[in-house]
């Protein structure tokens, strides 16, 4: 059992690797610890295996080698307790349920009581006020993604996994969400892992950025982001912010260049 149930759990990846049935090596043995109560961003080039890493942590893929522990327990246990939530790249809303219905479904699945006011609050927070009874087909792509984020947040999970959550959201809304949403999980001390290919987003939202190499994924850089909380949009003009962004970019480019050299050498 976990030592302290109220402590946000650490996520430990130990020698974690994944090779798919077809022989595609997505993640090469990788060990990393995501600290409890912190937001860690995972960045890497498209198709590098960062989504696979997230799915391994969520217990949706079985590792080929190594293990994942969430607060000392396997992912399946965290799933079972309803303490994990994923906001998928594809919003995955059930088309026959309204926005409210989709959010409430998560509470139901996690065996939590349905609190109408809480659901209402989240709907407002993600900017879907007035659309609670609308079905997904009538929403724009960005609105659907926001509904999916609300669904992930509603169960107040201890571990929140976000896979490109703002990909389809327009720039202005994205800034707004990037400012509002972290407050929710920061306030609760939720362990958050964010997968993104936007370096700015990674730096703005997280306490730490892990840079992955092109596939198969390995950690090429791991840097702390020392910006005060709560984050504000104007921080993006701060030198510290720009320095961090530059550092991440440099790590990314170096890994990609190494990779293309390796390809050229073959």
């Amino acid at each position: 059992m976990r030592a302290d149930a109220d402590m946000p759990p650490d996520v430990l990846c130990d020698g974690l690797a994944k090779t798919f049935d077809g022989g595609v090596e997505a993640v090469r043995p990788l060990s990393v610890r995501f600290e409890g109560g912190h937001t860690t961003a995972v960045v890497g080039p498209s198709g590098c295996g960062k989504s696979t890493l997230l799915r391994l942590i969520a217990g949706l893929e079985r590792p080929s080698a190594g293990r994942v522990e969430i607060g000392g327990l396997p992912p399946a246990e965290t799933q079972r307790r309803g303490e994990l939530a994923v906001a998928f790249q594809d919003p995955s809303l059930l088309p026959w349920r309204s926005v409210r219905g989709n959010i409430e479904l998560a509470l139901h699945l996690a065996r939590r009581p349905v609190a109408a006011a809480h659901v209402e609050h989240l709907v407002r927070l993600v900017g879907l006020e007035g659309f609670a009874d609308t079905r997904p087909a009538e929403l724009s792509g960005g609105m659907r993604q926001r509904a999916a984020i609300a669904r992930a947040l509603v169960t107040e999970p201890e571990l929140l996994l976000l896979d490109e959550p703002f990909a389809a959201v327009d720039e202005l809304t994205r800034q707004q969400l990037a400012q509002d949403l972290p407050r929710i999980w920061e306030a609760r001390g939720t362990t958050t892992i964010l997968v993104t290919h936007s370096v700015n987003e990674a730096v703005m939202l997280s306490d730490r950025v892990i840079v992955l190499s092109p596939r198969p994924a390995t950690v090429v850089a791991d840097m702390a982001i020392d910006l005060p909380r709560p984050r504000e949009p104007e921080m993006s003009r701060w030198p510290e912010f720009m320095a961090s962004v530059d550092a991440v970019f440099a790590a990314l480019s170096a890994s990609m260049a190494r990779n293309s050299l390796a390809i050229a050498a073959q």
Binding site: R55, A76, T78, R80, A85, S92, L94, L109, A110
Partner: peptide, 23 residues
């Protein structure tokens, strides 16, 4: 059913029965 719907069910620790009922 898109596989992501099934993933959603699994991420809450729900098995094939819940998936059948809800999805």
């Amino acid at each position: 059913t898109p596989s992501s719907w099934i993933d959603l069910m699994r991420s809450y620790g729900r098995g094939s029965f819940s998936t059948l009922v809800h999805v």
